[in-house]
Nucleic acid binder design. Structure first.
Lengths: 229, 229
DNA sequence: ATTAAAATTCAAAAAATTATCACATGGTTT
DNA sequence: AAACCATGTGATAATTTTTTGAATTTTAAT
């Protein structure tokens, strides 16, 4: 799994150091911008998965930065504010922030909020894929994470299911091993392409004899395809 | 659709007139309240089947009214808001609203939403008027907060019950730990996803051997599901 | 038939994920 | 105050999957 990237936009060097170190220790990758304009350009370059945004900033304030980020992205934003009392949550939510934390804050709490917001974001994103693939004697559902062969549910590990799902949803299309690593394992995967072979092999064991209307076919010198008769 | 009563709570006389006339023409019975407090008392007196609720109101704002209605009723509420651009739906849904419409709106669209929300509400209400889930040897009631296994009532802590209820009411559907934290613990929960494991474990101890028609199944690399047969 | 490239297979190591435990915490009841 | 319960945490054990490296087989072309 690729590192989650966080952009911290804050002009207080002490806070930045503290937060950066703490979050990096938690396994995140953190970049820091010290004013609003810099924050926006970093946002474009760095493509963070989450933004921590102070409200009072030089050059451009946090509200404005939030607004401009929202014009091009829906990535989660956590606002950092010093004024607890006067803070108007609705105003912030209106601008599209996802959460708030009030200075001075506990770094552990910040980290917890980061985790929660990312969870929320991801939980939503992957919620509504109701994609079921069906051919003769085979049914693959990502929602149920289930493979049914000739009506019977068959245990299959995640990667195998994902690979099968991908191939079946692009039936008759050949993919090279590298393409499959890209699409199924992710573009940042660093590994041997033999891996694909092994997964195909294990899938074939399970799929063997289930139907003659389709198969996992080797295209010699190229790669694999889910072939329909 | 006979004699459906709608309560419109809005301080803008123009909108009220327009909506009232249009909805009455569609066959609904419409009462209008012009501020939050009036809205609440009308709600008790009039016993509407649906509430149209503006957010910015004199006396008591829409959020507050929504909250107070929800304390005594689950009748559908459609919120009306002027802030179109970046309105945060979650905030409203949290308070228990059923839908939203943004000012200025098309009266025809409002009418369509009213119809849709009522349909949804009625379908749900008649389908399971009591929130009880039943499978072989198991019965879960959210209303009574009770779990029955093979006919016998079994003590189970709230969180475990809620988790079981959620999984069982979406049987066969896999959820990641994060999704479960979101759905069962709430979107603002700040905690570790291992928590889910522990709750599943404790549930399994109680559910062990009760039936072979269903189970709490681990979907390796993904999460958990309530699996049937 | 020979050869080199490509694909398959196997088993064991490595990595990732889940299960479980004992304890901490905070709120309630006795 | 003590005992209790529900809940959550962190550590460790157990399990499962994934990857790797090498041996073996198949393929296409000469």
């Amino acid at each position: 799994m690729m590192d989650t990237k966080i952009l911290l936009i804050d002009d207080d060097a002490n806070i930045c150091d503290l937060v950066k170190i703490y979050l990096e220790n938690e396994g995140y990758e953190v970049k820091v911008a010290s004013d609003g304009s810099e924050g926006l350009s970093f946002f474009k370059m760095y493509e963070p998965d989450l933004i921590l945004l102070d409200i009072m900033l030089p050059k451009k304030d946090g509200w404005q930065v939030c607004r401009e980020i929202r014009e091009q992205s829906s990535k989660p934003i956590i606002m950092i504010t010093a004024k607890s009392e006067v803070f108007d949550k609705v105003l912030g939510l209106e601008l599209g922030a996802d959460d708030f934390i009030v200075k001075p804050f506990n770094v552990k709490e910040l980290s917890a909020r980061v985790k929660a917001v990312l969870r929320r974001y991801n939980a939503h994103a992957s919620q509504n894929d109701d994609d079921v693939i069906k051919f003769e004697n085979i049914e693959i559902s990502l929602q149920k994470y289930e493979l049914k062969l000739a009506g019977k549910s068959v245990d299959v590990p995640p990667k195998e299911l994902e690979l099968l799902y991908f191939l079946a949803s692009n039936s008759d299309h050949v993919f090279t091993r590298d393409q499959l690593l890209d699409k199924v394992w992710g573009f940042d995967y660093l590994g041997d392409s033999r891996t694909v072979d092994v997964h195909v092999k294990r899938l074939r064991e399970k799929l063997d004899g289930v139907s003659d209307k389709w198969m996992l076919q080797t295209v010699w010198g190229v790669g694999y395809k889910f072939k329909l008769v």
